[in-house]
Simulated scan of single mutants.
Amino acid sequence: MTTPPTRRRRRSALPYFLVLPATLLFALFIVAPGAYAVLLSLQRRKVSGGLLGAGSEVVWVGLDNYRQVLADRELWSSVLRMLAVGAVTIPVTIGLALLFALLLDTARARFTRVARLLIFLPYAVPGVIATLLWGFMYLPATSPIGGDHVDYFGPAAVYASVANIAVWGAAGFNMVVIYTALRALPPEIYEAARVDGSSELQIALRIKVPLVLPAITMCTLFTVLASAQLFNEPNTLKPLSNAISSTWVPLMKVYTDAFVNSDIYSAAATSVVLAVVALLVSFAAARVVQARIAGGDR
């Protein structure tokens, strides 16, 4: 019995109908704002007229805003500060997530459900609230962690203070991803390794870690992108620390240019540059993940 043509057409149109809401939302909140930002980045407001008849108009300047952005030393300084925080955040976050996942996956682990919940719980705390909590713990007057003896908001220590908040909030999420990948592995592999005399440490380093390497790579990608979007932590700590300026990281500079200096055109150009860099990093990391998965399948 053949399917009627009308029913076949309905079935072929069903996938498009199901993805239509997501497509519309993507176009509305990602594509349209991105296109508008690109348009703004190619323009500039020009002041014209004398003292009495002063006015302004928006003029087309092409790539001039991008040339100014790429030559802006303040932007490159903020990028270096972001990279300094990321150099701490990325390896510590992935290292702790992997350590927690391996410990929870051991045969002798107890109360794993409670432990998973406690480790994941900081991820559920909004970033601004978490930063305020840590900010009060850093202050000498309210610090229970030695704020009288350590200047957590000093020019050098502030990098570790910001990185600590980012690690505290992100390690739990990455732990869940890696732990889920570990639980998906067949237990027969571990049993065969134990029969051969392998210790739990050898099983973890020589079997578990190589097999969940795609999950670790994906978590690294998430953490790199999160580090590139660093904003909440330094922006919330700025009133508490003289070492954090209004342009301390690139996104803070974009915010300052757009909403404090009212220069939305330079801010748009900076945003486009950062978005392109993030896309390139994501694309490169995705290719690495695919290569790891393909290598694991073979």
Score class of each variant (00 low, 15 high):
Arg206Trp: 13
Leu213Phe: 06
Val177Ile: 15
Asp148Cys: 01
Cys219Gln: 03
Gly146Pro: 03
Ile207Phe: 13
Pro187Asn: 03
Ala215Phe: 12
Thr220Gln: 01
Ile203Ser: 10
Ala171Gly: 09
Gly169Ala: 05
Pro214Thr: 05
Ile165Ala: 01
Tyr152His: 06
Glu191Pro: 00
Lys208Pro: 03
Ile216Ala: 10
Asp148Gly: 11
Val158Cys: 00
Ala141Lys: 09
Gly197Thr: 02
Leu211Met: 15
Pro214Phe: 10
Glu188Phe: 04
Ile216Asp: 01
Ile216Trp: 06
Thr180Val: 10
Pro187Cys: 06
Glu188Lys: 11
Leu211His: 15
Arg194Thr: 14
Leu211Asp: 05
His149Thr: 15
Ala141Thr: 14
Phe222Ala: 08
Thr223Gly: 02
Ile145Asn: 13
Ala156Leu: 12
Thr217Gly: 06
Gly172Lys: 06
Ala160Glu: 04
Met175Gly: 06
Val209Gln: 03
Gly172Thr: 13
Leu205Lys: 06
Val224Asn: 01
Trp168Tyr: 06
Gln202Ile: 07
Asp148Leu: 09
Pro144Ser: 15
Leu221Thr: 14
Tyr152Trp: 12
Cys219His: 00
Arg194Glu: 15
Thr180Lys: 03
Ile165Gln: 00
Ala156Asn: 04
Thr220Trp: 07
Pro140Ala: 13
Met218Asn: 07
Pro140Asn: 10
Thr142Asp: 00
Leu221Pro: 02
Leu182Ser: 09
Val209Met: 14
Val212Cys: 04
Leu221Cys: 11
Leu211Tyr: 12
Ala204Ile: 09
Ile207Asn: 00
Thr142Gly: 06
Pro214His: 10
Pro210Met: 12
Gly146Leu: 10
Ser161His: 01
Glu188Tyr: 06
Val176Ala: 14
Asn164Trp: 04
Gly197Ser: 13
Lys208Trp: 09
Gln202Tyr: 03
Glu200Asn: 12
Phe153Tyr: 12
Arg194Asn: 12
Tyr152Pro: 00
Tyr190Asp: 15
Leu185Cys: 09
Ala157Gly: 10
Arg194Ala: 15
Asn174Gly: 12
Gly197Tyr: 11
Asp148Gln: 05
Asp148Ala: 11
Gly147Pro: 02
Asn164Gln: 03
Ser161Thr: 05
Thr220Gly: 14
Ala192Thr: 09
Thr217Met: 12
Ser161Pro: 01
Glu188Ile: 05
Ala193Cys: 13
Pro186Lys: 01
Ala171Phe: 07
Ala215Asp: 03
Glu188Ala: 10
Ser199Trp: 03
Pro144Cys: 10
Thr220Arg: 00
Gly172Ile: 10
Lys208Thr: 06
Phe173His: 10
Arg206Asn: 14
Leu185Tyr: 05
Pro144Asp: 13
